[in-house]
Each structure stands twice: as structure tokens, then as C-alpha cells.
Amino acid sequence: MNVRILLFLLLWLYPIPLWAQGYAGLGGSAEGFDVPSAGYEFEFPMDHGPHPAYRVEWWYLTANLQGDDGLDYGIQWTLFRSALKPYDSDGWQSPQLWMGHAAVTTPKDHFFTERLSRGGIGQAGVTAQPFEAWIDEWRMAGSDLDSLSLTANGEDFGYDLSLTAQGPLVLHGNAGYSVKSADGQASYYYSQPFYTVEGVLHLPDSEVRVTGQGWLDREWSSQPLATDQRGWDWFSLSFEDGDKLMAFRLRGDRGDFTSATWVNSDGSTEAIPNGSINLLPLSTDKVAGRNIPTHWHVNLPDRGIDIQVSALTPDAWMGTSFEYWEGPVTVTGSQKGAGYLEMTGY
């Protein structure tokens, strides 16, 4: 889940104008942070844990669910880590900050909430073995990444889910080295897109038993975007035949940068280079005072993919410290399926 990096960087104290200034100043080693490089070999389960020497990192789970009431639902559970300095320490003085986002999207409503914490005191963090990612009472935990329990609560909503992986981990880009711009900015990026999910959604008026499919993204980096890049559109789609597609478009002044990963149902992948996939907005909805493209045309000619992607609920706005659109989508056209869409910078 590539360019979500920005999200956490614009954490609570950063004023929005920083966006316009770009991120040239954040460039890697000068401030002591490590920078991703091609050829890195992941070590699991260690790499499921945090990498404090990198500036940003996240554990990002989305799921498309069907309720026993026959309705479609979507949930999001995200834990972001942002390092003010490239080390960790115990106590309040820890420079590692943590932010949690949780959301439930129903066909009519969108509930979301946010949590903030710092590292060093045990209020939030991630351990690789056994796996646990937590902030306050929110948890994503299990003996390993293959079977997880997931919980989060807001004022008027919450969920308790269990996830079971049905396939292998998936590396994006070049063996997990995912390039983000023509200038070479990159991140480490892998996913577990094969979860089956079951559990309960707690909604203001009801409890709904749900089942469905989940997708976990793991990504970390220190130098996420090129200076001209203004925002992104990111897709994670699961088709009925078991294939999956991750695709993103970074919108820049010097032109868009696209990247995608085709995931076969057995977990084998094909990286799709810049310019090979077309992501085109079809129509917009007025959401939170902005025009948000909620219908898309996705075209991957090499594989004969020609689909339309539509938001389940146009109003899936995350009005958190850093605002963005994130919600479940349905896929029609040459393929049928469901997935998640994230859009920032509108």
C-alpha cells in the first residue's frame, strides 16, 4: 500500500502547508534515517515488527464483508508508526509516534475514529513474534501473521474479527522494493491479501455477524514522495476467480506515476511498470466539500482487464488528523469482485 506514507507524516502537529512545500527536506540519510534500497531480502517474522530507523511504517488492514443481514460492509484497521528521530527509547521521551485509524463502512454510513500514542511506554507498538500490533485497546494479534484476531472501538461502533490467511505473502515492486516516482523514491512493501474474515461488527443500532475477505499491507520507508506529487489513488481489488490487483497512481505536476502488482490466486505475482495501467475517474461525488472521484475505469490492456470500480458508499471520508477518502468498492466489467480504494490530496 504504497503512498500512504504521507498520511502519518502529516501527523497532528504538522500544519497542512507542509504539503505544498513538498518533502525534499525529508530525504533520508541527512537526518540519520535509513533509506530503502533495491536488493533487500525480507526476514520474516522479524520484518513484521517495527523498523524504528525508518521514518514511517504501517500495518494496514482492509476487508470487504457480507453481513448475515445480506448487506455489504467494509472495515479498515490501521496502525501507523512515525519516527521523529531514527531510534527508539523507553519512557515518554521515545521519538516513535503511533497513530491508529479504524473505520466501518455500511451501505448508508461511514464510522471512523483515530488514536494517538507514543512509543516507549507500552501504550502502542508492534511485536513480531508472537505477532501483536496495538494501540490502546485496539489489537491485531496472533501467534503469527497467518491467523489474527482484530479489534477496534469508536464511540458508537467497533468490531471483533478473526482473520485466517489462505495464501502466501506477496511482495510488490522488485522483490518488495516498490518505486514511487520517476526520481527513484521508494519503499519496502509487501502484503497478505489472502485473508478470510469472520466476526462481529458493533453498529450503533445492531450487531452484525460478518464474513468476507481481508488484505493486509505492510510498508515502510523514509523518503516517500517526489516534490511535485500532490496525492494518490490506490486500489486493492479481489476478483471472483481468485486473482488480485494492487494498483496506484501518484498525481504529479510532471505527470502521473503508476505502478501495479498482479497477484495470481496461487500467490505468484507480476509487477506492472509505470504507464502500463490506466486509472481514469469517471464521475465524482461531493464529499466533505470536495469533488471525489467515486467511479473509476481501470484498464490493464496487457491482461485484457477492463473494469469499472464504484464506491459502496460515496461518503467514506476519513475526517481524521490527516483527511482522506478510504472505502470499500465493487468491481464490474471484464472481472467481478470487490476491494478497497484510497484517495488523498483532493
Partner: peptide, 20 residues
């Protein structure tokens, strides 16, 4: 007081406020 500092012309870096 924090909000005021954020909205000033030269907002403090959160890293400076939160770390030694």
C-alpha cells in the same frame, strides 16, 4: 497554547517538543 504555537508563522517541529 499548543494550537496557538501550531498556527504561528514558525510552527515548532513536533520532534523538538516531544524529544530531548
Amino acid at each position: 497554547a499548543v494550537t496557538e504555537a501550531q498556527q504561528s508563522d514558525a510552527p515548532p517541529d513536533p520532534a523538538d517538543i516531544l524529544t530531548a
